[in-house]
Amino acid sequence: MANYSNMTLNLFQSRKPLGSIEKWFLTIVFLVISGIIIWTIQFYLDLSRQKTIGTKVVEELMYFPSGKFLKPAVIEYQTAMADLVWLRAIQYYGQHLMTNQRYEYLDHIFDILSVLDRRFTGAFHFGSLVLAWDARQVQGALKLLHIGINHNPLNWQLCFDAGFINYMLTKDYVAAGYYFEIASKLPETWKITERWAAFSYAKGGATNLAVEIWSSIYATTENRKLKELAERNLIKLGIDPKILRTQINADTKENNNQIIRENQRPVKNFNRRPNRSQIFTRYFLVLILC
């Protein structure tokens, strides 16, 4: 046994030390082989990831638990979380748009967004359009818009989107007209929405509502072309423009008279400064209360 170990020791000792070229050669060979192994492993891992679509879906779901759970979990960082979900939603949409065009979890993602940041109108706008057109989930889109409208009642864009989806996809023209009409009355709105409301009502058979809007446009606009358009549409709806003009003139006269009457009434000045006795009484009351 001792002889054997001495032999081994001698064998190692007898070996010549490696030259610098050999050292470099061995190092390069080692690096190349390691590199090939790493590349092969990574390639295999990528392939296996591509194969398991089920795993991928589960991963996506893992990232997106219910909004009701996420909201308390992220405490006061809801807006930051909403931004992260928003970025993920864009990524999800883009990824599926370029591949299979299936958007199974898109409504779920936007549902979370609607819980995390209820004033994120951009997300409601984009989400509803994508859900309605790309994912073909019209009801989901309308549900999302209803949440958005409830929390942002002064945003005309969301009402317009609801009208647009109803007009184009569900073909519910009266509902479309209703949303367009609301949108037309909100601040910073797109002027065309009022006309869209009238068109939709007319197309949906709600003639009275269409006549009301066209008459209002006819009576208020100073744009000659728009007046002509309103007149044409009113004729289409069976209204005689001559009668309408007479009625509008009568209404205008009545309105003017009422304005004159109101201006002649004595107006109580609510903004006038209180006099000394009133100030004294107020201070006295405050002192008693203290």
Partner: peptide, 14 residues
């Protein structure tokens, strides 16, 4: 630039 028109909001939130 990745936030599709909502960049200003995202920067403020962050």
């Amino acid at each position: 630039p990745l936030a599709m028109g909502e960049g200003d909001k995202v920067v403020k939130d962050i």
